[in-house]
Design a protein around this nucleic acid. Structure first.
Lengths: 189, 189, 189, 189
DNA sequence: AATGAATGAGAATTCATTCAT
DNA sequence: AATGAATGAATTCTCATTCAT
């Protein structure tokens, strides 16, 4: 708890501004001056909190993308009757707490700084892990074919995690729930 | 065919350099001076051929990403016996002629200039169209469920087109052939 | 004697830090923030004690370079038998009480602020005066040639006062005792 | 041979300006903007020729302080009759071709960059070497006492090389010719 | 077509200094 | 006395772009 009011506010407003602008225009194309203007703080204050421009990006990634601990795992009973539903539920409980803006930043700036790439990889691993677990529980019959299950989990993870970016980049949306059903049918029986 | 000689060479070398550098570091983070240096030409010459920096990007996209006309469409006989194989063949004959570097540029700089985004959308439409056609021919039984077929085509397109970027971003590769088989199983019978 | 406690400590630590840093990197290249950090005090406190950065330099020069009152002047008996020794003893009792760091600061920052230059000149005058006196007593025969005695005193003062800086700048050390002997031989008989 | 006129001029004018300003105010206290203004060129041009500020200093030292090859060494006949004169002549033919401004820069900025310090040391070695040679020829009798000759050479070098800086710093001038005579008397017979 | 000096707007960053608490 | 957030002017440096040759 900061208790200081304005001081904490300024830092937060700076990060808010950076998040918006990095998402809209990219890290390189966003000047620190614009961040300051948008945040309503003097230029110097940005460097008071973030001595280098890159620290803005690093702070955003560290503070605004949280990979949640998995809650209660789906039980066999939950999923047995409705494998597609189990995946769909996973889709809705994506363990990434990050605004759409932060997802775009993670995605676009993955090469800008190691910390971004690392976070993206960690996130991907987490989602992949949970998708695999969901599939294993939902479709015990599929266990026989590990490679197929792996492909299904990877596909679902890709669609789930990058759906917004894919939509943005391709102009075409892929619905994770439809993919969930597709996969369930493929692995079922 | 353009008259080459010195001039053509220089222009080509400039585009080569821009392609490498834009792919490695991004458009914004690449200065025209570095492009000139890498191309081994004087700084002024870059602006002789490409009056604005953005023209480098536009030229790359226009000249180095070609969406091929579909060759002979797969016949029903080809695919009936091997639906997954039909998709897999599509994977191998991806109608985008573009180096991996150009794919990364298309992908990363989609927001930098309208021409890039347009080309990416056009490409996505072309691949999606062909995947849909392949699925329709390969799996006539699936026609009943248009939505499912659409999801399958979209999923396959995404995996096919972005496989390298997904691998780069996630550290995890998704194999299009495995996805082809997954989809074939799902839509079959 | 000042009432010390916390405040005195902080002020002293600030001056200690400034002395180290000014000597090592120069006044201009040393930021007040670095002084504060090295001193282990908050930035604001530096300006509490020294409202302007230049006050740090002025305070160092005023408080940490003392020109000592000459103690008992050498008597004729002392020096008559050993003129070179008399100069050498002067060398050992250089009337400047200042750390090597402070000498470097005096020397390097002479142009930075009038107070530094003034102190340096005063110091030079004091040493020159004592060297002259020592020579006059030690070498009564030399009195006849005032110009020569003056040159000897000036040379000895230069070597004595700047020996460390000369060594630092030239990579070559000049030994004041050897110069003392040289001068004694020159003026003797 | 540059043959371009203005272009060469601009670079030269920039170095001229830097030399003046560095000598007067020191390297750190001189902004590149002031250098540009004084040189009458736009700010950007300074960085065209000298990508980093320190390159101005390095270029000055490399291009404007030349240590001359010794001309004809003084012969024994030249010096035998007039040892002090031989040293005095050395004083007048100091093998450093550098303006007084450059000498101040060499001296003051020795710690700012390695290249400056190196040049200063090289210069000192060259002068010391020649002073030693002159003394050996002029005062063959002194050969017996190597240590004394060494001290004499070092003293003369210091006075010769740093006379302007010593005068500037101390407010007192030491005349190299008087020191030459002093030394000659000391080593003679 | 080829060249590289010239230009100036704007970028990141530094820093002395102020001030409310 | 102590603190560190706040401020903005100044600094170094970058860069797309122009232009004379």
């Amino acid at each position: 708890m900061r208790g200081r009011g304005r001081g904490g506010d300024a830092r937060t407003r700076i990060l808010d501004a950076a998040e918006e602008l990095f998402a809209a225009d990219g890290y390189e194309a966003t000047s620190t001056a614009r961040v300051a203007r948008r945040a309503g703080v003097p230029k110097g204050l940005v460097f008071h909190y973030f001595p280098q421009k890159i620290d803005l990006l690093v702070a955003l990634v560290e503070e605004r993308t949280h990979i949640e601990e998995p809650g209660a795992a789906p039980t066999a009973e939950d999923t047995a009757r409705d494998p597609a539903g189990a995946l769909a539920r996973l889709a809705r409980r994506l363990p990434l707490r990050a605004s759409p803006a932060m997802r775009r930043i993670l995605f676009r700036e993955a090469d800008t700084h190691r910390s971004v790439r690392d976070r993206l990889h960690a996130l991907n691993r987490a989602v992949l892990h949970r998708a695999r677990a969901a599939l294993e529980i939902a479709l015990p019959g599929a266990r026989g074919d590990a490679a197929r299950l792996e492909a299904a989990a990877a596909t679902f993870t890709a669609v789930l995690l990058y759906q917004e970016n894919l939509a943005h980049l391709t102009g075409h949306h892929v619905d994770p729930e439809a993919v969930a059903e597709l996969i369930a049918r493929s692995l079922g029986t």
